[in-house]
Structure formats: structure tokens, C-alpha cells
Computed example of a mutant assay.
Amino acid sequence: MGEHAIEAVGLHRSYRSRTGWLRPQRREVHAVAGVDLAVRHGELFGLLGPNGAGKTTTIKLLNTLLIPTGGEARICGFDVVRQTREVRRRIGYVFGGDRGLYDRLSARDNLRYFAELYGVPGREQKRRIAELFALVRLTGREDDRVESYSRGMRQRLHIARGLLHRPRVLFLDEPSIGVDPVAARELRQTVAELAATGTTVLLTTHYMAEADELCGRIAVIAGGRLQALGTPAELRHHADGRRVLEVQAYGVTDGQLAAIRARPGVREVSLAVHGAAQLLGVQSDAGVDVQADVLRELSGVRLGRVTARQPTLEDAYVAIVNRAAEPTPLVGGVPA
């Protein structure tokens, strides 16, 4: 246990749900279904997965906000169920969004208030708060009301709040959600600098570029289980032997997507919405040129840019998540 800041073995969380009124049906839902995880001290570790995959539930199990229904987890060697107080002294939790700060107070007064809640000794507060303002690059804006802060500045202040008591492990749950690209870049710089100080960081995010840039290792969770684990370069191997066709389109139907998926050589199909446009991604075997077939299936749809490229981490992620939806033998929570 000593070499790991975070360790989970067979972590499980289930709950019962009820549907219907006349003939109610009860079923057991497994939000987390046997997760094994080990994060080293000082590591910046990424946890990726689609909505409902179990990311946030896993974090809440690790930071004592939820009690596991099976398995065990330790933070810095302390059990999250039996030694909750010791765990909470060693962790910080930062979530995305605007909640958790007092808008009418200045940033400095916010941190003073939370420093009292976290039990930071009064003689240390002034120096610690100044250090944190410098770390999150808010020096000079300490006495501004938080209501005047941009969303990116708020998120950096959230991080400062989570670091007041010098936690050894920091959980960052989608910190850049809703943040504009410039603010997101500043946020990534803050996280990278934080990890360089030796703090262990567990980051969840939906942005593949963010995970690729920051994380030494990444775990992909889907269906409540870890489906892949490794460095960004290792995860890219899940898309080896493929090529990617990207098509900008306007009005692709579900029927057309199904027809493209059925074409020979097509391995994965994804569709993302960017404003009024759709971005269709088609992964195919490297030796198969599917462009003509795809464009034929899109007959009648207004098209924009069409490009072919090599797979990225995001393409590998799509392949991993789609594979998780198929019946696959699992060994220790990771597909064999």
C-alpha cells in the first residue's frame, strides 16, 4: 500500500431503482462493478468515460462521499470506510461548474472562510492564501468580488480552495466543463504546475486533448468497469491498423449512420455536434478506402470538409468505449 496514493480493489457500488406505478418493477443497477485501481504518489492520473460510465461515482467512493457496497479503497494507506477522518485530512475535491463559492465575497474572503472550515491555523492562513493565489495566477485580483470573475477564474479559485489544507491527493472532477478554450488552456497550466509540486491528481474529463496533454496514465471506464489502462501512447494502440475519415455534414440521419456502420471495413462510427454542423468520424481498416461508400450513403446531405487522417487518442477512446458495449470476457475488470 505504501507506494500508492490511491488504491482500490474490487470497488463496487450498486443501488436499487423502481420503475412503473401500476406494476412497479425493481432492479439493481451497478454504477461501479468491480474497479481495481492503483495511482502512485505524485502521479497525474486521468479517468475517462462517457456519461453514466461510473467516473463520478468512482471518485465519490474514493473521497468518502459514497460508501462502497463491495470491495475496498485506500487513500495514502487509510481505508475510506473505516478511517474516513484520516482520509479527508489528506484529500481535496474540486468539481466543475459554478457552485461552491460565495459570489458577494472577495476571492480572498472566500479562501479565508474555507481556511477556517478546513482547520488551517490562523498564523498560516495569510501566507498559504498568498501562495495559492500565485499558483492559480490570480495575484492582483484577490480583493475582487467573485461575481466579477470569469468562469475560468472561478475554476482556478475552486482549485485554490481545494488546496488550502495541503492535501496529498486532489480529485478534479471535470474542472474545465463549460470553460472557454483560452481559460481551459490556463486551467491546464495550473493543473500541470500543481502536479509538479508532488500533489497526486486524479482528473476526470471529457476532453481527450486535455487528458493527452496532462496525464501520465489514463484509465477508461465504461459500464462501471475499467476497459483500458495505460499511457496515452499505449491507449492509442487500440486504434492501430486503422484510418479515420472525417466528414463535416448537416442533417445526417440515424438510418444513414446504421448503413455506414454496415459497410465492409468500417470498424467505428461516431457523430459529434458542433453548432449547426455535425462531424462524422468513420474508423476503418487501414487497407480499406471507405470514402466513396460513405459519401454514397450520405447522398442528399449537405456536406462540408472531408478529410482522412491517422487515429488520435480520441479515436482510440471511441474504439474502447464501443467495444465495452459488446459482450467481452473480462479479466480483473479489464477486457482480455
Score class of each variant (00 low, 15 high):
175 P>H: 05
153 M>V: 03
146 V>A: 05
149 Y>C: 03
154 R>W: 04
229 L>C: 04
270 S>R: 11
183 A>K: 06
222 A>I: 04
221 I>S: 07
165 H>K: 12
237 H>M: 11
153 M>T: 07
278 Q>K: 05
196 A>I: 01
219 A>K: 07
226 L>C: 07
198 G>P: 09
177 I>V: 15
269 V>N: 04
167 P>C: 06
248 Q>V: 15
216 G>K: 13
217 R>C: 05
167 P>A: 02
201 V>S: 04
169 V>R: 00
272 A>K: 14
220 V>Q: 08
284 S>R: 05
140 G>K: 05
218 I>R: 02
155 Q>K: 05
213 E>W: 13
269 V>K: 04
161 R>Q: 12
225 R>A: 10
147 E>V: 13
207 Y>S: 08
168 R>F: 01
208 M>N: 04
257 L>P: 10
185 R>Y: 14
241 G>D: 07
282 V>W: 01
157 L>K: 03
284 S>Y: 10
258 A>D: 15
275 G>W: 06
207 Y>F: 13
213 E>D: 13
169 V>A: 01
251 G>V: 02
213 E>G: 03
238 H>Q: 06
214 L>Q: 09
162 G>H: 00
199 T>W: 02
202 L>V: 15
245 L>R: 04
260 I>M: 12
157 L>C: 08
238 H>D: 00
167 P>I: 11
262 A>L: 02
258 A>F: 08
219 A>T: 11
153 M>A: 00
157 L>I: 08
176 S>A: 15
238 H>L: 07
160 A>N: 05
221 I>L: 11
142 E>R: 10
165 H>A: 10
216 G>I: 08
200 T>K: 06
254 D>G: 15
218 I>L: 14
221 I>P: 02
180 D>A: 02
167 P>N: 04
138 L>T: 04
180 D>R: 08
222 A>Y: 00
155 Q>H: 01
149 Y>R: 05
155 Q>F: 09
163 L>P: 01
239 A>W: 06
267 R>M: 10
169 V>M: 07
200 T>M: 00
231 T>K: 10
178 G>P: 05
224 G>F: 10
278 Q>G: 12
150 S>R: 02
207 Y>N: 15
265 G>L: 01
158 H>Y: 09
145 R>H: 13
236 R>Q: 14
231 T>F: 09
254 D>F: 08
249 A>Y: 06
209 A>F: 09
